[in-house]
Nucleic acid binder design. Structure first.
Length: 442
RNA sequence: GUCCCCAUCGUCUAGAGGCCUAGGACACCAGCCUUUCACGUUGGUAACGCGGGUUCGAAUCCCGCUGGGGACGCCA
């Protein structure tokens, strides 16, 4: 049997770190097993789904290097779902419900206030044929629920081990809306069956769904896939992933100069027993991947950790990998000079301004800076200019160490820290250097 | 409220009764290197949520408590 996994996002927004983790784990599992990955766009909810989001999801995955072997879109498969629904109806597993959403909401609140689980009370099951006919005659279209069989539902979860649910604790799920459109619960199972999905790996927010879906798989006569539910990630404070931490879109991170491998390294290791370290490529991640390394704790995702990994990546990133994203005019020499001081690619712009100006110099001691300026050699500048110049300044003023170098750095860059001046000075050039040492903005 | 899950250094975790005066990685601190940052290197600080039990012995098993999370949608 071919190992086949799927990543099934709903195109209701951009991909964020939480989504990507699901995509990555499925991708890694498929690759490790020599299997295939299906990208399925779960867009049965027409109101919330947007085609542009689907396109963006594909673009984001492609940028990350997470390719797929097959592609499907649920909105293309409505006829197939209708066929399955007809079968379920004739098998007596679907029953019509005429309650309005408001009515159901009220029932839930009532149950909750009485200390009862807010599951559907199956009132519709008690409707007589005459009552159903009457309701239908009034023009009320019913939603169709799947009648769950009572009893225990068990499966062996790749991450959680043996799991079991009592069907009595679950609500009969609506499978078809009054307008005839199937709900995710149904479409997902039909697709998993039709595309021969062998493993379903998703967040733990789906465990109860899995119990319901197992009955659906069995009812539809198909093989039940292997399931795995990993715990959801929290932000650094242990709270639900928010915009601030983690939920920012991949698109934004990318625009900010966060590299794919930094994101991938973090997400592949977070919550596993492997150390969270920058890994060189996806192949390494595949080699190291083992679903058994995932724990059941709820890991915290700290954006500072992402920055740490990205900074490490930046420090060794070749010019060719970034040249197109650098400010116009930025050269390889510039990149090599500043990359060790970057956290995100977008930081390069700040140093570009330090090189090209305008920079407001910090003149700590005008006399010393004037003396140094007088000794600045003529152009051309090269890699040795800095050391020969500072040696001359040292000889003339008797200064050394921090007293010698920090005032010069302040005057030349306006900052107290930054890339090595030996490499920066030739980029700044004599004209700007002289202007800044004179106290001018340049 | 009901059902399910979780609880070890700041963080991710190892630990399946004695091998644990609890190991690793990252972060942090200090030394070395260094004009800054970074890199490298050496060393260091730092954790079993609480209370009962079982046992000769518990981070490990059981119960309770506390704390956290998920689910309970005509969303996915």
């Amino acid at each position: 049997m071919t190992v086949r996994l799927r990543f099934a996002p709903s195109p209701t927004g951009r991909l964020h770190l939480g989504n990507i983790r699901t995509a990555l784990v499925n991708w890694l599992y498929a690759r490790k097993a020599g299997g295939e990955l299906l990208l399925r766009i779960d867009d049965t909810d027409a109101e919330r789904s947007k085609p542009e989001h689907a396109a963006a999801i594909e673009a984001d995955l492609t940028w990350l290097g997470l390719g797929w072997d097959q592609f499907a879109r649920q909105s293309d498969r409505m006829a197939r779902y209708a066929e399955v629904v007809a079968g379920l109806k004739s098998a007596g597993r679907l029953y019509p419900c005429f309650e309005s959403p408001e009515e159901l909401e009220l029932k839930r609140k009532l149950a909750l206030s009485r200390g009862r689980p807010p599951i559907y009370d199956r009132a519709a099951l008690k409707l007589s044929a005459a009552e159903i006919a009457a309701l239908t005659a009034q023009g009320i279209a019913p939603a169709w629920r799947f009648k769950l069989e009572p009893g225990a539902i068990r499966w062996h979860d790749l991450i959680r081990g043996d799991v079991h649910f009592e069907a009595e604790h679950l609500s009969d799920p609506v499978l078809v809306r009054p307008d005839g459109v199937p709900v995710y619960m149904l479409a997902s199972v039909v697709d998993d069956l039709d595309f021969a999905v062998s493993h379903v790996i998703r967040g733990e927010d789906h465990v109860a769904n899995t119990a319901v879906q197992i009955q659906l798989f069995e009812t539809l006569g198909g093989p039940v896939p292997v399931f795995g539910h990993f715990s959801l990630i929290a932000d650094a404070a242990g709270e639900k992933l928010s915009k601030r931490a983690g939920a920012s879109s991949i698109e934004d991170l990318r625009a900010d100069g966060v590299e794919a491998m930094a994101i991938l390294s973090l997400l592949a290791k977070l919550g596993t027993s492997d150390p969270i370290e920058l890994r060189p490529d996806l192949a390494t991640l595949v080699a190291e991947f083992d679903i058994a390394k995932f724990g059941r704790n709820r890991p915290k995702l700290d954006m500072a950790e992402l920055d740490l990994l990205n900074a490490k990546l930046m420090h060794a990133l070749p010019y060719a990998a970034v040249s197109s994203r650098l400010p116009a005019g930025a050269t390889e020499a510039f990149w090599l000079a500043v990359r060790a001081n970057l956290t995100r690619g977008s930081d390069a712009g700040d140093w570009w301004q330090v090189v090209t100006g305008p920079v407001t110099p910090l003149i700590d001691e005008p006399e010393f800076i004037a003396a140094a300026a007088a000794l600045l050699p003529p152009e051309p500048f090269d890699a040795t200019t800095w050391s020969s110049w500072t040696a001359a300044v040292k000889a003339a003023t008797g200064r050394k160490g921090k007293d010698l170098f920090l005032p010069l750095r302040h005057a030349l860059t306006g900052r107290g820290h930054g890339p090595e001046l030996a490499t920066l000075l030739p980029l700044i050039g004599r004209e700007r250097a002289m202007a800044r040492m004179g106290g001018g903005v340049a």
